[in-house]
Design a protein around this nucleic acid. Structure first.
Lengths: 344, 344
DNA sequence: GTGAAAGCGCTAACAG
DNA sequence: CTGTTAGCGCTTTCAC
């Protein structure tokens, strides 16, 4: 077992003090008047023996762990894992590591997660918050810990946040369906208090009502069994034969909904239009390919990390920013009847 | 800013020594003869003020960080993110957090990742290793750090590992295609040294040769541009009109390959059979639905974490175990010609 | 049964 | 310009 060497060893070997080594290590050598020659000597020796400072000791001393705590609903969800990858990419270049936790969109789980992260002394938080977590986040902020919220807003809390315009995204999706001649659009969404879901619903409602229609909404419970979800959607479709388009509020719902549509033997596009909120790599391969509202993942990540770094580096008070990004509609064939426009 | 309290504060408030509090905290109270009354007193006070020990200090003292370093090729890949979620679920119950890093299947990136993880004093490693990392892993093991390898073998290194029988999975896939009457099967795989890919290739070759055919393999570069990958596969299909089935070595290749097949207007199942290594939630929704070789993700995760916990808890030497799990073929419609059996 | 004290590896104020 | 030293918060040996 190769003995891990400490700053003390380095200092002894070099016949200098720990301070000098520490200064060099932290780039404070010049400002503390360590000679260039000495700096080079230390640096090259460190390089040679492959010394790396112990983060634990550093963390204990400085109160900084150089890790960021990321909390999302479920890290296995494509949307979040793609984001996790981007965060990693960006934060790594800044010398940070990420520790993650899945909230399951559950307040208690999240509270516990925050506690654990605090114990680990994470330097900052990136959170897609579940409902009812306002108080805990507020406490964090009051303690001066950088927190960036994304994906879901936290109303009544002044905090840095990066969101997507769910309302407009849903509105545009609905509008697009109406423009393509679909008259009876049902929105399939989650039975959930999540604000972003409510916003999507609001966008849909608004658009339908403006067009003089009446909204039809089917809600599925969050962790509903796949079979039950499919059966429910199927049932709805059978009881409402006039329905000629479906707007799925999430990717995950579409997974079940598309199966339900297949079971009902309804021809997508011609007999029933389909638009999904959140894109998937696979959608372009479906026949017909599936129209989707895609979130600007790249932009979300850079905005979040920018805000975070700002907080991390800034010492002076800065007012929280709320950034809202537009969605992007990717029109494919599922929302365009063949008679009017597309090929399947 | 709420002052974070330390064990010293607790001790002072309670008029006992830090030692006593520490013993209670670590469940070593009874064995060190702290009275029941005192234990209850400490516990209830701690509960009341919400004290939680500082992991950094604990880590510095004990050399344990209670975090596990997970390194996979790319955390945004569904396979790995699903696994990450499961790891999290299991390790959380044991009091561990996970810090992750994406290797990009690159040796240097991985080396650096290992260094960073070491600095962070992670207690154990879960690694899907890139080629050429043997030496570094060996060094880790010699230092007595628990390391569990998964997904890809590290030949010539005696280390705990959990793998899937890629050879047999590929063999079975090929056999299944042959059994369904497909004669000219091409395997589309990655131009890669990764052992698991080589094993899949070997399984395919073996099966084709046993049947008296001659293997046909199309290799795509790893981070190839999507358009180029699609064009290459398309080209192959056009130049080899006799090809009547495709075996995709990964999910990711299938994404492009299915598009190529669509571009060539070849009817999946009837004109061209398709099997994919690695399942996707979306495959059952394709028309026709896509036959896949699925990896036992649940089992992989429990085996990996079991091995890890064993190493973490055990003090005595134990011989490394190599666990190989079987794959599971999910026969859907893409590999069964309609004339013979299925519906689309 | 309980407490004092050493020390994990590091940073940074303060001496020299 | 460089070194000495005092902790950061915790665990654990050893003495009372």
């Amino acid at each position: 077992m190769k003995k891990k060497l400490s700053i003390k060893d380095i200092a002894e070997q070099l016949n200098v003090s720990k301070t000098t080594v520490s200064f060099v290590l932290n780039g404070k050598a010049s400002e503390n008047g360590v000679s260039q020659a000495m700096q080079r000597k230390v640096l090259s020796y460190i390089e040679k023996v492959g010394y790396r400072p112990n983060k634990m000791a550093q963390g204990l001393r400085t109160g900084k762990s150089k890790t960021i705590g990321m909390m999302v609903e479920d890290i296995s969800d494509t949307f979040f894992s793609t984001i996790a990858r981007k965060f990693e990419e960006i934060l790594t270049t800044k010398g940070y590591k990420i520790i993650y936790g899945s909230t399951e969109n559950n307040t208690d789980v999240t509270k516990e997660l925050i506690r654990v992260f605090r114990n680990h002394q994470v330097d900052g938080y990136i959170i897609a918050p579940p409902p009812g977590i306002e108080e805990d986040i507020k406490a964090l902020i009051e303690d001066g810990v950088p927190v960036i919220i994304f994906d879901r807003p936290l109303t009544e809390l002044d905090v840095d946040s990066v969101l997507v315009d769910n309302y407009r995204g849903a509105y545009k999706a609905t509008q697009h369906l109406l423009a393509n001649g679909y008259k009876n659009i049902v929105m399939v969404t989650l039975l959930s208090e999540q604000t972003q879901m409510r916003e999507r619903e609001r966008g849909y409602r608004q658009c339908v009502e403006e067009a003089g229609g009446k909204p039809a909404i089917l809600k599925i419970r969050y962790h509903e069994k796949k079979e039950k979800a499919i059966a429910d959607i199927e049932q709805y479709l059978k009881n409402n034969r006039k329905t000629d388009a479906v707007f799925f509020a999430t990717n995950y719902l579409a997974e079940n909904g598309l199966e339900a549509i297949a079971n009902c033997k309804l021809a997508i596009a011609d007999r029933i239009g389909v638009v999904v909120f959140d894109d998937s790599n696979w959608f372009r391969l479906f026949k017909p390919s599936i129209t989707a509202i895609s979130q600007p993942i790249e932009a979300i990540c850079t905005e979040v990390t920018n805000l975070l770094m700002e907080r991390l580096e800034q010492k002076k008070e800065i007012a929280p920013k709320a950034i809202v990004l537009p969605t992007n509609m990717i029109i494919r064939n599922s929302s365009v009847p063949v008679k009017k426009a597309g090929r399947t």
